[in-house]
Design a binder for these strands. Structure first.
Lengths: 213, 213
DNA sequence: CGTTGTGAAATGATTCACAGCT
DNA sequence: AGCTGTGAATCATTTCACAACG
């Protein structure tokens, strides 16, 4: 069944992309996809696609390709998105507010079940589907609402402190939109999204070709 | 001077983090930093830090470390952020709006000089520092405002089309907040920020440790 | 034919380990 | 003693190349 070798991190990222692309092909009426078509839609070699899928057993039929209908649930199961996850947004500033309205989260099975802030003027208001609660209520509501992920959108200065609160409240993962590196225990996972970093990468890449790095 | 070997992509990412950390240490009064202190602040080995910096020549003093004062401009120069860059937000929905208010961009020398949308109800309003213009005005205003980057926050369905417009208008890079893979010419760079992908990675990582992926 | 699955080779990135400088 | 800079070794990831299958 599943191998003992560990899965490369980049493979997991691509798996999400494969799922997305296959779903889009399904909408277009495709019944099978080949590693070639999948790869070229994503700018990846066919060998890479086969290798990635190969980590999880046999999916395809030689001469035919991969069955769209079989692949979708299989990929969802691998990625653990064959279920719903509950998340809460912490920090209802510009970014938190945007995420509370981001339709793609719910569409993918990530339910935003809570919102938290410290500002009295914001607490009690409704943003998206959520009534904003006090940050101090995280411990109580995390249990009550079964919050599994915290989506951290607070100012950098308090990021670690609020992360600690989330960890104590029992969340299993943090999606970190702050530029602060978070120290959390080994049982907690953090994935960071860093806007400034992304822009800086772009500035570097753009310059690279011009003046030949 | 600069080597002939090409720089690993991950190194460039870390360089941004080094700069950030050194600036924060400078604010705390530090005069030198060692690869050890820099690394441990970022969860990186000291050897990794030295290797990364080594790609760009000699920075440090054996026995002492790296001079904070010398490093900051040096890193900025490598990353090409020793100048300002002009960018425009395209798509003033939830995310575009949040980015138009994101203070960290301007603080880092990325000036948001334009905003574009298709909605009549939004066009002409002011968001952040920008008056929202029509998307059709991109070609004209891109030149006039010297827009170098497009920050793409439109719906996935029109992402490629709007990206084409930006490319034609002469931007050099696109920061892509849509989940659409963009096909652009070889002279244009794209860096993507994908919220759903990040959440999916988190779901996988969180599950991994529990049921021993 | 076209396509998968996978050893083996190649490439890329990180860590080790230590000479040499302060 | 403390620290950098860097060959050499290790580890990780991708690509090659082809047997086996539909």
């Amino acid at each position: 069944m599943s191998d003992r070798t560990s899965i490369p991190r980049p493979t997991i990222k691509r798996l999400s992309l494969y799922l997305r692309e296959i779903e889009s092909q399904e909408a277009g009426g495709a019944v099978t996809v080949s590693s070639r078509t999948l790869g070229s839609a994503l700018g990846i070699t066919d060998a890479q696609v086969r290798r990635d899928l190969g980590y999880f057993g046999q999916f395809g039929q030689p001469g035919i390709g991969y069955s769209v209908k079989a692949m979708i649930p299989r990929l969802k199961s691998i990625l653990r998105i064959d279920r719903e996850w509950n998340a809460a947004v912490v920090g209802v500033g510009n970014i938190g507010r945007a995420l509370l309205h981001y339709p793609r989260f719910t569409a993918k099975g990530f339910n935003i079940v809570g919102a938290f802030d410290v500002e009295d003027s914001i607490i009690g208001t409704t943003v998206g589907n959520c009534r904003v609660a006090r940050i101090e209520d995280i411990p109580r509501l995390a249990v009550e609402l079964e919050i599994e992920f915290g989506i951290l959108c607070v100012p950098k200065q308090v990021a670690q402190e609020v992360a600690d609160l989330l960890v104590t409240a029992g969340v299993r993962g943090i999606l970190n939109f702050t530029p602060q590196r978070l120290e959390v225990g080994p049982a907690i996972d953090v994935v960071s999204v860093d806007f400034s970093l992304a822009l800086e990468q772009l500035a570097y890449q753009v310059s690279e070709e011009v003046d030949g790095g």
